[in-house]
Simulated scan of single mutants.
Amino acid sequence: MSENAEVSAIFCYRLISPGGQCTEWTQTGVLYLSSAEGKYRMGGWEKVMGKTLLEAEYVEFDRFLIEFSITVMKDPLVTCSDLLSPQVKLPPPELSNDFADLLESKEGADVTFCVQGETFPAHRVVLAARSPVFRVQLCGPMMEKDGSYVIVEDMLPGVFRALIHFVYTDCLVLPFDGFDDEDRKEIVRHLLQAADRYAIEKLKLICEATLCSCLDVQTVATTYALADQHQCNDLKQACLKLMASPTILGELMASQDYENLKRKSSSTALEILESVCKFPKI
């Protein structure tokens, strides 16, 4: 071994009898050897063979024959750190973009939706995979006679476009060009209704979270009625929390939206809020 060299090796041995019969190879674990002074490490075996058997089978003329094999271990071409930190740069996920391109190209579309005269070609297998309502409507026994052409009632074209885009891409893109803040909130409300109608729960939660973040005294009554109708509990709680302020509730109770809400909703929470507002302050 060269001076100051360090290697790792595996040692094997077997006994050879005078008649040429060999035992099975016996192997050590990996031993680390160094030629540097003070760094020699020794390895060996204990209880190789009983003395009686050794003398009877392998000793002749007070000698016995042992064959050794030494395998020097080289450094691996790929280390663990290389595996944990690959040099190949992976591209970003492309599935969403691929499905968006599929929707945009209309290639292979086998169903067309008509919303207020505007048509939307789509692929029934994609819709069925993402919505149990679409699955029943397009693939189940209740499928309409002309299953390739579906008229959608009570929905805006822009809302349906955003709904279908989310079905394909799992991303929400709203038609905001030319809309002010109030128009955008109204679109989100309609989209929440559409998501609930087609049982697309993730989209429904996204709309719910969006409406929670933009509540105000002008829209809270309408939003509460929407949340109550579509079982959006988090949105209802956010509305109640805003309305719980005596100053806001007093102003709200004088509005027409609140009167409409009381007629449509039998919520006990509203009665409690009114009682708190009217209770004399101490």
Rank of each mutant, 00 (worst) to 15 (best):
E57F: 06
Y224G: 01
V7Q: 04
A128F: 03
V48M: 11
Y168K: 03
K281S: 12
C114M: 12
I187C: 13
G108Y: 03
L252D: 01
M142Q: 11
V133N: 03
D146N: 15
Q21K: 13
F279T: 13
A128N: 05
G140I: 08
S35F: 05
F166E: 06
P91S: 13
S131M: 03
T268A: 14
S96W: 08
F61P: 00
D170I: 06
E24A: 12
V152Q: 05
L191E: 03
D181A: 15
S2D: 12
I187Q: 01
L102P: 00
F113H: 00
P92Q: 09
L249N: 03
G147M: 11
L33H: 08
S8W: 06
G140S: 09
F11I: 06
T26H: 04
S245T: 09
C239E: 04
E186T: 15
S148Q: 14
I10W: 02
C139N: 09
T26M: 07
T223M: 05
F160G: 02
M142R: 13
E57T: 14
I272K: 12
S81K: 10
F11S: 00
D228K: 02
D154I: 07
L252M: 11
N4H: 12
A162M: 08
M42N: 11
V167P: 01
C214F: 03
R189P: 01
E186L: 10
T247W: 00
E3N: 12
R161N: 07
Y149Q: 14
A225H: 00
L95K: 08
R124T: 09
K202A: 10
T222L: 11
P91R: 07
M155H: 05
Y168L: 06
Y258M: 10
L31Y: 02
A36E: 11
G178S: 07
E153F: 03
S96L: 08
H123Y: 05
M1C: 11
Q87C: 08
V111P: 00
A56S: 14
E201L: 12
L211G: 00
I70E: 05
M143E: 14
V133Y: 04
E182C: 08
L53E: 13
A244C: 12
P121M: 07
